[in-house]
Every structure is written in C-alpha cells, then in structure tokens.
Computed example of a mutant assay.
Amino acid sequence: MSTALSDAGIAPANWMAPTTEALVRSRTDLPVVDRLAIYHYAYRARLIDCLADDYPTVRHALGAAGFERLCATVIRLRPSRRPNLNFYGLALLEHCRDQRFEVPHHAFIRELAAFEWAMTEVFHAQAAPALSLDTLRRIPMERWNSVTFTPNATVRIIRSIYPVNAYVQAFREDLAPTIPKRAWSSTVIFRSGWHLSRMDLARPMDGLLDRLFAGQQLGVALDALPAGTEGPQVMRWFTEWVSGGLFATVSM
C-alpha cells in the first residue's frame, strides 16, 4: 500500500510516520500545516455559503454574525458526510429541531428553517406529470364523490405557529422584517417546471387539501368542510391547485 501511494505521488514512502509533514508531500515554500489550514478555512467557508444559500431568511433573522455562529456549531456537530452538498442544509434544520441546543429565537428559527428547507426539497424533487383540468372534466359527475388524488412530489404543506411565509415574503421585498408574534399559518409550496410558488391556505383550504393528500375520497373530504363553505369557492381552490400541478393522478 505504501508503495502504491508513493508511486502515485500522493504521499512519500514514510507515509506511516505520525506527522503531518510525513503524510503530505510539500511542493511549495508554504509549510504543509499552513496549506492544510487554508484548505480547512476554505472548506468551512464553502459549507457556510451552502447553508446561507438554503437559509437566506434565517440568516436575516439571526444577523450575519449570529448565523455564522449557528453554522459553525452545525458544521462542528454535524459535518458533511457526502461529496454532494445539495442536501447538507438538512443538518441545520435538524440542529434547530434539537432542544438540547440553544438557538436565538429558537421556536421561530425552527419554524422558519423548516419552511426554507421545504422550498429546497420542492426545488430538487423529481416531478411527476401533473394532473390536468381536461382530465378532471372527463370524469362523469356521478363518480366525483368517490375520486381520490395523489399529491405531486414537488409539493409541501407547511403549517406553523408563526406567519413564516409572510416573513419570507417581506424579506424578499427588502422590508427588513422583525421577529413576528405567534400566529397560525399554513402555506403550500409547489413547483411548476422550475418555478417555485407559495400559496397561503386558510384553515378550510388547509383541511381540505390535507384530507385529499391523505387519500380521502373527494365526497368525504368535502363533507368535512365548515358549514357555509360555498361551492364556487371550492371550485376556485381546485382550479388553482390543479393549475399549479399539486396533484399527480386521480383515481375512481
């Protein structure tokens, strides 16, 4: 093994010696330890950049310095184990969900991180062909109560104890939002092509979409709507959901 390493120019023949200089062949005037320190700094900075790409609104909420401290803790406790960094951002969300660790504005940051990570998941998800309005129009009226829907992989419903979508939107509009008070919210995040969209859901909309995603028959799901919910209103919801590609298939 040592011969192979030496022949490949990866390490000198005394590669088993217990020193850094013995393990890494020097090719410049810069000491080996300093070269490794540069690499260590650059790789850590790269991980922070990746986390900032996934969580720009969390970075705003904590401030640049606070966000970097959070990233440093995440990198130390949950180092990257994969060559691809596309999904390393999950480590930050898992850290924020862990009650053993202190995070400023912990409850809000946890909810906000979950929201931003859902957007990343939707962006990378493998899309299925979306259900079309024409397909729905061909279903006989007498069969509608028994139909069920399959959600597309490029959809997430995020419920929160904070108005996270409003906060994200305010940040994107450069309105410098501050940490909000608690308030229930539900948002569906979905992708059409490579365009990411977010739609706030009132409680009746949230309940209906949740039941349909769980596989309930349409008639049963509609019966659970609050009294006074009007048919034309429900049809508008369906038109928006189908047009946005929220459903992959319909079954009868």
Rank of each mutant, 00 (worst) to 15 (best):
M252F: 12
P140M: 00
Q217E: 12
N86L: 13
P140C: 02
I158D: 06
A202I: 08
R143G: 10
P204V: 00
I139Y: 03
D210T: 14
H124N: 08
T239G: 14
D34S: 10
L212P: 00
P104L: 10
W241E: 05
W184S: 11
L208G: 01
L90F: 15
F115H: 07
Q233W: 05
R35G: 07
I179P: 08
D29R: 15
H95W: 12
P226Y: 00
L208K: 02
G228V: 00
E68G: 04
S192M: 09
E240V: 11
G63W: 01
R110H: 13
L92T: 02
G231E: 12
G219I: 01
G66H: 02
P56C: 04
Q169T: 14
G66T: 00
P56I: 05
L196F: 03
N14P: 01
E240D: 15
Y41F: 10
P177N: 04
A183C: 11
R82K: 09
A91C: 06
N152S: 14
D53Q: 14
M119A: 15
P18N: 04
F190S: 12
R137P: 06
L51P: 03
D223V: 07
N145G: 15
A107Y: 10
L85P: 02
L222H: 03
T229R: 01
P56M: 04
W117K: 05
S26R: 15
R82H: 13
E116N: 03
D29Y: 13
D7I: 13
V24L: 05
W117Y: 07
S186E: 11
S6T: 14
S80F: 07
G89D: 02
Y39H: 06
W184M: 08
G228E: 00
R172A: 13
